Simulated scan of single mutants.
Amino acid sequence: MQQFRRMLGLPGVRALMVLMFFARIPLAATSMVLTLLVAVGLGGSYGAAGLVGGVGTIGVAVGAPLMGHVVDRIGLRPMILLATACEGAFWLTARFMSYPVLLGTAFFFGLLALPTMSIARQAIAAMVPEELRRTAFSMDSISVELSYMVGPALAVLLATQLSPQAATTGLGCAVVVVGLLIAVFNPRVRADHEKADTARLPRREWLTPKFIGVLVVGGGAVFILAGVDVTMVAALRANGQLDWTGLLVVVICTASAAGGLVHGAVRRSLPQVVLMGLLGVLTIPAALFVGEWWLLALALVPSSALCAPTVATTGEEVARLAPVSMRGAATGLQSSAFTLGASIGAPSIGFVVDHTSPAWGFAVAGMGGVAIAAVAWLLGAGRSVKEPVAV
């Protein structure tokens, strides 16, 4: 674990990791809070809740690069204060909104949401030297897994013990606190030797096929994850084992975190596109184990162990390929790729499950991942990591 000790010993990095873990808990709770507010608080359908979430997702996909552009032009703190004020105002007033108003404002909420994912990646690229970035991005991916284990659970606890409206107020307060803490901490988004690099490059000079291939892999990884989530719930429900969902989520998140630890500890890892291909290939066998929850959990462990490494390598590659002066926009595009992967994966694999069976959901998600890896290879992502040596 020497790599992790070296990385966490860098000035400000340990505090950044702790802050970003707590900062992403509100983000992890967002989807659950919206669903509970519409379906329970307003008495709407789950489809209506999904529509609000989908509109907000479109806003996030559009807004992430724009927020990154603001960071590139005027700095991190002004963007944080703007996003905190806008997102906090949305959540603190959401309890008073009717469904049409909620649906109409969801896009702007997503557009101006606090981009905690992008902030973390920009700060890591600035604060961590290149030889330790794999370790730092792996730790960041593990932190995301932990945040997503905590956030939805807290949302359900508030909504069930108090009310969905109370959950929105709590989320609004959390967003404001988190935003102010990040603004006070004000992590660096450029290293000392990068501050003089202010040249504004045309997008065509850095948004190359290789860079697009990196984004394709990032979106593809989340496509598989979203598809697996939907299929997993469908499989458990079909077998009357829905009560085991929480434990199954803990198992696969733990496997992902373990994979991230290994990925961050080694000095050389597999190329990004190979990790993506293996993630897809190892998802397919889960189709054979949909009968019992514990068999399904075991079947999903190998693919889950590759989730954090695949996502971490995406961050590493974006930091390496993006010019310093455009890093904010580049990490914003990375966040958009993740968002689009989730917004495509969940409904498309859900459609497959609705018209076939949960087994086919796992199979199609895995095969889709393999196809995405092939596209990324053609775009040049297969040669994006230097010295590709197996772990």
Rank of each mutant, 00 (worst) to 15 (best):
V352F: 05
R73D: 11
L333G: 04
F362R: 10
M17K: 06
V301L: 07
L288E: 08
R5D: 15
V184T: 13
P115Y: 05
V364C: 07
L34R: 09
L42H: 01
L242M: 12
A286R: 04
A265C: 14
M79L: 10
E317N: 15
F211L: 03
A49K: 03
G380P: 10
M97I: 11
E205V: 13
A286T: 12
L42D: 05
G345P: 07
L270I: 05
I142H: 08
T57D: 09
L114W: 02
F289Q: 05
G345W: 02
S348V: 11
Q272G: 12
T231A: 13
T331G: 12
L157N: 13
I252F: 05
K386T: 15
M117C: 14
Y99E: 11
Y99F: 06
S147R: 06
L42N: 00
A155M: 10
V318Q: 01
L300G: 05
W206D: 01
M367E: 06
A255V: 10
H355P: 09
R190A: 13
E131N: 10
W244R: 15
M97Y: 02
H193L: 05
L321M: 13
P388S: 03
P187K: 06
L333R: 11
S335R: 07
L236R: 01
P129K: 09
G260E: 06
F223W: 09
L42I: 00
E87D: 04
V273A: 10
P152Q: 13
P65R: 01
L19P: 02
G56K: 02
L201S: 08
V251R: 09
E194I: 01
L296C: 09
R121C: 02
L162K: 07
R268V: 15
R134P: 13
L10R: 06
P100Q: 00
F108H: 07
L288G: 06
M20I: 04
T93S: 12
S343R: 04
R190K: 11
V311N: 10
A381L: 06
V60W: 14
A94N: 04
T105D: 15
G44R: 13
N186P: 09
V217H: 06
A374R: 09
L225M: 07
W377F: 14
G59T: 03
T84R: 00
I212R: 05
P187D: 09
